[in-house]
């Protein structure tokens, strides 16, 4: 079973040379720590920066340079700033190559729910609906089950949707799964996790073909 850093490490292997990548808040943010350093990747933050660098050293922070989580950041050589309309032009116009975000639920047809729990204070969708409606390549980073132990990979999402039929791949603490027209296709197992464990933790249709290899991290 993987922890959050393990999930981030596995997803980092999906990031390819020349990619522009948008990282959501939570586990996705950790992905930046594990991207190979022999490839060129630029991170986009929807509040208006491309070419995000690490957090600043203490005393070097700038209130005018933050990420979408409102954290102080730095920029790397070649970075650029832009307004919110241009930022979402990059996203909606499919100029960003890869979007990695968290989810509360994903359904076997690729629907995603990650912004609202009825009865609880709703904070808003931020840029999530724009991201999932447009990105060609969306990877969801999440735990396989919720705190109550219930599957987050469902036949149908029970929570209000963020987007429909958009998720392509899911990396959880247990597995790597591809979303196909026939349902969740199991690609890889996390170390120490059996195919049966994954089956038991997945409510939606799970397609298992041949031997399922263990993830290489």
């Amino acid at each position: 079973m993987l922890d959050k850093n393990g999930i981030a490490k596995r997803i980092a292997k999906e990031v390819q040379d020349g990619y522009y990548v948008n990282l959501g808040i939570g586990i996705p943010t950790l992905v930046a720590n594990y991207v190979r350093d022999d490839i060129e990747v630029e991170f986009q933050s929807e509040n208006g920066v491309l070419g995000m660098g690490p957090f600043p050293f203490e005393g070097e922070e700038d209130a005018d340079i933050i990420n979408a989580g409102k954290q102080t950041i730095t920029t790397l050589p070649g970075a650029s700033f832009f307004d919110s309309a241009m930022s979402f032009a990059m996203i909606r116009g499919q100029h960003v190559d890869l979007t990695i975000l968290g989810a509360m639920e994903v359904s076997e047809n690729g629907d995603i729910a990650n912004w609202k729990i009825p009865g609880k204070m709703v904070k808003g969708m931020g840029g999530a609906m724009d991201l999932v409606a447009s990105a060609e390549n969306i990877i969801v980073a999440m735990m396989h089950t919720n705190r109550a132990g219930e599957s987050k990979l469902l036949k149908n999402c029970s929570l209000p949707l963020t987007g429909v039929g958009c998720v392509k791949k899911i990396v959880t603490n247990m597995a790597v799964i591809e979303v196909t027209s026939k349902g969740f296709k199991l690609l890889e197992r996390a170390p120490g996790v059996s195919v049966d464990d994954i089956k038991n933790a997945t409510e939606g249709a799970l397609i298992i073909e041949g031997d399922i290899p263990e993830m290489k991290l």
């Binding site: 929807e46 919110s84 979402f88 996203i91 909606r92 840029g127 724009d130 409606a133």
Partner: peptide, 23 residues
């Protein structure tokens, strides 16, 4: 949605009555 918020402002700025978005 954040991109829709931006574009509804931009539409007002640019003289478009409305826009279509997938979001």
């Amino acid at each position: 949605p954040q991109g829709t918020l931006a574009e509804r402002c931009r539409a007002a700025q640019a003289g478009f009555p409305a826009i279509y978005t997938p979001a």
